[in-house]
Design a protein around this nucleic acid. Structure first.
Length: 546
RNA sequence: GGCCGGUUGGUGAAAUGGUUAACACAUCGCCCUCUCAAGGCGACAUCCACGGGUUCAAAUCCCGUACCGGUCACCA
């Protein structure tokens, strides 16, 4: 029996040979230096902030070089695959404006010439590549049971040997065709293992775009290529897919660092050019004294939906990611806020140590980003947010559209805009007093005793306040009425002789502010009064009692 | 335990052998013809995990130690 016939029995029903598949995938015709990379998630549920981080960086690198970033779905673990997982990933990423040039666009559709992009649909291809190795005696069927493997592992632990299937532990490494065939005829199950040509004593040097030169012992593990269900392991799929799809850069999380010797060995065995690897450090979190990776299960901020629910702008999240990826981005961003996405990332600026996820920093970025928005833009975002999370506020925003935009425009669209809105969720609490419907509901009655003076308020609204005054006139008028009620017109004067006055002009402003908004802290009082209008000011003043 | 990686302030970090260790967030002060949010100014690492070595010179190079992290699946 020939090796080819043998391979056909081990992996039957494979439609094409490795060579035939290779011919189906043409070289890409891209300009020099164009990066072809991919984002390759497992459809195990919602997108994790780490996935957003990696995918965003990968697409940026591809696009800034005029290259391609494709979306490949790694669903070879049928146990972990969840229903609608693919749709969820695509939806979440698209929500963040992360789009791919090729790959899956839904459970059933895809774009691009290098597919299929869903690994479960590529079973035949992997098996063709595995057959190629079997024919060259570089792969073999392994009949070991789970119990046998467990026994080996225990034994290795006992004698403090390295764990794994290698050397003397690779029981079926040199199995004869006859013996394999006999076991198969008896119905024994098997997997396909790689016959590793490596020697643990040798070193392999690998250049990582982020980490520089790395040195590992050569891989000598007979890793699994094809699992019992006929699907490939990650390692083998990585080789086949990234070679066929003509991927030039592997951008992935650094948990893969330690399997690098396996991966380069596979590429070397096939005689393929190794891709350039760039391993990214994960986002971490401080937890009970230790530091650990952000966890999908434990940390609410790990899911991208958290930012959606908190009303943190997508742009802010991306700016934060850019900052973490290349710390020189922050300085650049300060000077290029309008075209904040046009930054050229570089691999050697990517941090090699895992960074703590800093929610304070994100909040700051979010606040700053929101301050640069136009009132009408903020209005739209607040509207979208409240539509989903705060129906009552949504109705008000809809009902008083122009008024709301004017409210949001207070101290906005100026050289130094206000920075009090941290996220879209906090819009309501910042401006609720501007709506009569919320004023009495959201605002707790203010216990204001310090400078309470009803006479002053009444006099002010009836005899002084004029909607047509400009800001300076408005303020001068307030100063002018101060002495009449025992307040100092100048704050300095009051500070020098506090006993001579009831308070100062600051306190008069405070009094008006509290009467009208029930808050001590608000944006520009002049603007607020103007938007409220004399009638509503009067109404609120009349109702203001202690 | 083996292998690999990392270690600069409360946090993210810059610096790639050469003056007082950038910058940003946070914190704390002071200033600012109405309060806040801001903004301005200033403070905040006697020193770059520790020990040794190389060098005229080290956070930067070498060795060792400690600590943290990753990985060692028919999971990705």
């Amino acid at each position: 029996m020939t090796k080819t016939e043998y391979a056909n029995i081990l992996l039957p029903n494979v439609k094409h040979t490795k060579e035939e598949y290779e011919n189906m995938y043409k070289d890409r015709n891209l300009k020099e230096g164009a990066i072809v990379t991919r984002f390759a998630p497992s459809p195990t549920g919602f997108v994790h902030i780490g996935g957003l981080f990696t995918s965003f960086i990968a697409t940026r690198f591809a696009h800034q070089t005029g290259g391609i970033c494709l979306l490949r779905i790694e669903d070879t673990d049928t146990k972990r695959t969840v229903e609608n997982g693919i749709e969820e990933i695509i939806r979440d990423l698209k929500d963040y404006g992360i789009t791919f040039d090729e790959g899956a666009i839904s459970e059933t559709e895809e774009i691009g010439e290098y597919g299929p992009y869903i690994q479960s649909k590529r079973k035949d291809i992997y098996q063709a590549f595995a057959k190629y190795l079997i024919e060259r005696d570089l792969a073999y069927p392994c009949f070991m049971t789970e119990e046998e493997q467990e026994t080996i592992r225990k034994k290795q632990e006992n004698v403090k040997a390295r764990i794994g299937i290698y050397g003397q532990f690779a029981k079926f490494r040199n199995i004869t065709m006859d013996e394999a065939l006999e076991r198969i005829s008896k119905g024994e199950k098997y997997i396909i293992r790689f016959k590793s040509p490596g020697n643990f004593e040798n070193k392999v040097i690998i250049e990582d775009a982020v980490r520089g030169k790395l040195s590992f012992p050569e891989n000598d593990l007979d890793i699994v290529l094809i699992k019992k269900d006929g699907l490939p392991t990650y390692h083998f799929a990585h080789l086949v897919d990234d070679h066929l799809m003509k991927v030039t850069h592997i951008i992935r999380s650094d948990e893969w660092l330690s399997s690098l010797p396996i991966h380069v060995q596979l590429f070397d065995t096939f005689g393929y050019k190794r891709p350039i690897y760039a391993h990214l450090s994960p986002l971490t979190k401080k937890d009970e004294g230790g530091i650990r990776k952000l966890s999908k299960r434990k940390d609410k901020e790990a899911a991208v939906s958290y930012y959606h629910e908190a009303g943190i702008p997508k742009e802010a999240v991306k700016i934060y990611i850019m900052t973490t990826a290349n710390s020189n981005y922050e300085e650049w961003y300060e000077k290029n806020k309008e075209n904040w996405l046009d930054f050229t990332l570089s691999f050697d600026k990517v941090s090699t140590s895992g960074s703590l996820f800093d929610l304070d920093k994100l909040t700051n970025i979010s606040k700053n980003f929101i301050s640069t928005m136009k009132a009408s833009e903020l209005y739209e975002e607040a509207l979208n947010y409240s539509q989903e999370f705060d129906k009552e506020f949504y109705d008000l925003l809809t009902k008083y559209k122009d008024y709301s935009i004017n409210v949001l425009n207070i101290e906005r669209e100026v050289e130094r805009p206000r920075k009090d809105i941290e996220n879209y969720a906090s819009v309501r609490k910042e401006i609720s007093y501007m709506y009569d419907e919320l004023f009495n509901k959201d605002e707790t009655p203010y216990e204001y005793k310090d400078f309470y003076n009803k006479d002053l308020l009444t006099y002010y609204i009836n005899n002084v306040y004029d909607e047509s005054d400009d800001k300076q006139t408005w303020f001068n008028k307030i100063k002018e009425i101060c002495p009449r009620f025992g307040f100092a017109s100048e704050t300095k004067e009051y500070k020098q002789n506090p006993d001579n006055y009831k308070g100062s002009v600051s306190h008069v402003c405070e009094l008006i502010r509290v009467a009208v908004t029930h808050r001590k802290e608000t944006p520009d009082l002049y603007e607020i009064l103007k938007l409220l209008g004399k009638d509503r000011i009067k109404e609120r003043i009349e109702k203001f009692n202690i």
